[in-house]
Simulated scan of single mutants.
Amino acid sequence: MIQSMTGYGKTVLQLSQKKITIELKSLNSKNLDLNVRIPGYYREKELGIRKALAKELMRGKVDFSIYVEDNGGEVSSKVNEKVVKEYMNQLKNISEADELDLLKMAIRLPDSLKTEREELNEEEWNEIEKGISGAVKNIQKYRNDEGEALFADFVMRIKNIEALLEKVIEMDPERVNQVKDKLKKSIDDLQINVDENRFEQELIYYIEKLDITEEKVRLKNHLSYFEKELHSNHSNGKKLGFITQELGREINTIGSKSNYAPMQKLVVQMKDELEKIKEQNLNVL
């Protein structure tokens, strides 16, 4: 069954001191374009995240984010007492301010606060990995649901082209007779004598050049092949794209050879259906 490249997945982890939100978004793209936004203390895990996401999502413009909210745990910034006291001692020599004012001045000076870098907690990371797996499952479900909608639309479009092709096949004998009649009328209007045998030979040669039998057969085969790939176990948007190119080639050739207005109208309708297939196929994984 086909999958869409468009998707969204999210999980929220409530740990003892943190709320962690893991988010995945994806849009269509020719290849995998992965953007990862995570806090600095998880950076050493980024390569593993990228490998896991590439294996599961394969294609698309994917944004992966981890957001961390502190629930009141220990603060990471602390007062550097030694530095603050040294500042206050120096300020006493140049100022008559009291202790409170000296403290206010000292705390604003460089290095009076020290930030302790949060280290990666492996138990916490194990929970985050589970959360990432959950977000991937959610985005896969979203992609599958979108894929079902695309599948239904593709089947409808293919059936429409098949129905139009049947009308073309039914109309073809009428078209050939119409072309013959037009040529004969043109000769009659010239009011000249022609060799009937030679005229018939030239007429047959001309009709053969306008023959669309091969195009009709190939178009029918390509339509069947496209529908078969829709039912494949693997989603392959690139392969479907190649088949649509072949569909377009046969439809265009039928249009250029038809030389018959009613048939050209049917060809225009087939082209319209095919363009809608091409647009939707851009979203297929």
Rank of each mutant, 00 (worst) to 15 (best):
L32M: 12
E81W: 07
N71G: 14
K82H: 09
N71D: 08
Y42M: 07
Y87E: 02
V83T: 07
V62A: 01
K45L: 03
E119T: 11
E123Y: 05
E44I: 11
I66N: 00
V68Q: 05
E96K: 15
S77Y: 09
S16N: 14
L24P: 00
L34V: 03
Y67Q: 08
N126T: 14
A97R: 10
S77E: 15
K85L: 08
N126A: 15
Q17H: 14
D98L: 08
N28Y: 07
S76N: 15
K114D: 14
A106E: 04
N121E: 06
V62R: 00
V12M: 09
E96T: 10
R43G: 05
E23I: 11
K92F: 03
N80T: 06
K114A: 11
M58H: 04
N126M: 15
K85P: 00
V84F: 03
L32W: 08
D33P: 09
I49L: 13
L13A: 13
L32D: 10
V79H: 04
Y87W: 04
N93R: 14
K85H: 06
K45Y: 05
V75H: 12
A54P: 05
L113G: 06
E123R: 02
S76Y: 10
R117L: 12
E127S: 07
D101W: 07
I107T: 07
V36F: 02
E74N: 12
G73S: 05
K55C: 08
E74I: 13
L53A: 04
